[in-house]
C-alpha cells in the first residue's frame, strides 16, 4: 500500500497520467462538441483507431507532424462521412456511429495487412516515428521548486501541451464566439436557430467534422507517443470512455478535461499496479478504467438528476 502511495505521488506517475489522459482529453473534447450540437458521436472509438493507423503508416514516410495531421484529416473525413449519412441521408446517428466503429475494427486490420504485407494485427514491421517529448531544462534554474517543476513538466508529448491549449480554445470558441453560440443553440433547441436563419445542418456537420478531427489527434497521440506503433483494437474502449467523460464533465470543456484526467489517473494506475501487486491478475487490473467509468457515470447522473428534481421543486 505504502509503495502504491509512493508511486502515485511521484513525478513519474504524474507524467504517466498526463500521457494516458492526453488521447482521452482530445477524444472527450471531440465528443463534447458533437454532443453540444445535438449529435451523440459514438464513433469516437473508431475514429481514434483509424486515425492511429493512418498516423503510424504516414509516419513511416513523412515527418511526425505530417503524420499527426494525416490522423487529424482521417478523423475529420470520418466526421464528414457521419455528417453526410446522418444529415443528408437521415440515418440514425448512433447507427452511423456504430457503422464507423465496425469499419474501423475490421478495416484497420485489413489495411495494416496490406501495408505490411501480411501482418494481421501489429505494425511491428513498420519503422514508425514518435511525437517528440518536450524537455524544459531551463526550469531547473528556478530556485527551490526548480528541480521538481522540471520533473513534473518535462517529458510530456507536444500534443499534451496542445491538449491544454485545445481545452482553452474549445471553451473560448463555445462561450465567447458567435459560432459557439450557434453550436450550443443548435444542440439545445434546433427550431430557434433555424427560425433565426442559422444553417442548423451546416453547424451540425461542421461539429461532427471537428469532433472527428479532435478524436484523430487523440488517436495519433495514442499510436505515436503512448505506444509507438499500431496494434489491432489498440484504442481498447478509450473512445467509449471519452463518451462517458463528456457526460461526466457536465458537458463543459473544463469539466471534460477534468473527467478525462480522472480516467487518465485510473488508466495510469492500471499501468503501474501490475509491477507493485503481481498477485492481482492483469485482466482484473485492466477492468479498472471501465468499472470506474460506470461508477462515475452512475454517480454523476444521480447527482444531476437530484439537482434537477430540486430545481423543479423550488419552482413549485
Amino acid at each position: 500500500m505504502i509503495e502504491l502511495l509512493m508511486t502515485v505521488f511521484s513525478a513519474t506517475f504524474f507524467v504517466t497520467v498526463i500521457r494516458t489522459a492526453t488521447p482521452l482529453i482530445f477524444a472527450t473534447l471531440g465528443g463534447l462538441i458533437s454532443d453540444l450540437s445535438g449529435a451523440l458521436n459514438v464513433a469516437l472509438e473508431g475514429m481514434m483507431l483509424i486515425a492511429a493507423l493512418t498516423a503510424v503508416i504516414v509516419s513511416v514516410y513523412a515527418p511526425w507532424y505530417v503524420a499527426v495531421l494525416s490522423g487529424v484529416l482521417a478523423g475529420a473525413l470520418l466526421g464528414a462521412l457521419m455528417a453526410f449519412f446522418h444529415l443528408k441521408m437521415k440515418a440514425d446517428i448512433i447507427l452511423v456511429g456504430f457503422a464507423v466503429n465496425i469499419l474501423a475494427a475490421g478495416g484497420t486490420v485489413f489495411a495494416l495487412s496490406q501495408a505490411t504485407g501480411g501482418d494481421k494485427g501489429t505494425s511491428i514491421n513498420l519503422t514508425s516515428k514518435a511525437v517528440p517529448a518536450v524537455d524544459l531544462p531551463f526550469l531547473e534554474a528556478i530556485p527551490v521548486v526548480g528541480p521538481t517543476l522540471d520533473r513534473l513538466l518535462s517529458g510530456h508529448s507536444i500534443l499534451s501541451w496542445l491538449a491544454a491549449l485545445t481545452v482553452f480554445a474549445v471553451w473560448y470558441f463555445l462561450y465567447r464566439t458567435p459560432h459557439g453560440l450557434w453550436l450550443r443553440g443548435v444542440g439545445e433547441y434546433p427550431a430557434a436557430p433555424e427560425a433565426a436563419g442559422i444553417p442548423v445542418n451546416k453547424v451540425r456537420a461542421w461539429s461532427l467534422v471537428a469532433s472527428g478531427a479532435l478524436a484523430g489527434i487523440g488517436g495519433a497521440q495514442l499510436a505515436m507517443f503512448n505506444y509507438i506503433g499500431f496494434t489491432r483494437d489498440m484504442t481498447a474502449g478509450r473512445g467509449f470512455i471519452a463518451l462517458g467523460a463528456v457526460l461526466l464533465g457536465a458537458r463543459h470543456p473544463v469539466g471534460a478535461m477534468l473527467a478525462a484526467l480522472l480516467f487518465g489517473v485510473f488508466e495510469a494506475l492500471s499501468i503501474v499496479m501490475p509491477n507493485l501487486f503481481n498477485w492481482i491478475p492483469g485482466e482484473l487490473i485492466q477492468t479498472i478504467p471501465f468499472a470506474v467509468t460506470i461508477l462515475a457515470l452512475i454517480l454523476f447522473s444521480y447527482r444531476s438528476q437530484r439537482a434537477r428534481q430540486l430545481k423543479t421543486l423550488s419552482k413549485i
Partner: peptide
C-alpha cells in the same frame, strides 16, 4: 433509476465481462 447513458454503461460492461471471463 439514475439516468446513466445505457450506451456507455453497457459498452463498459462488455469490456469488463470479456476480461473477467478471460481471467
Amino acid at each position: 433509476r439514475f439516468g446513466a447513458s445505457e450506451i456507455v454503461s453497457s459498452l463498459m460492461l462488455n469490456y469488463i465481462a470479456i476480461r473477467v471471463v478471460n481471467y
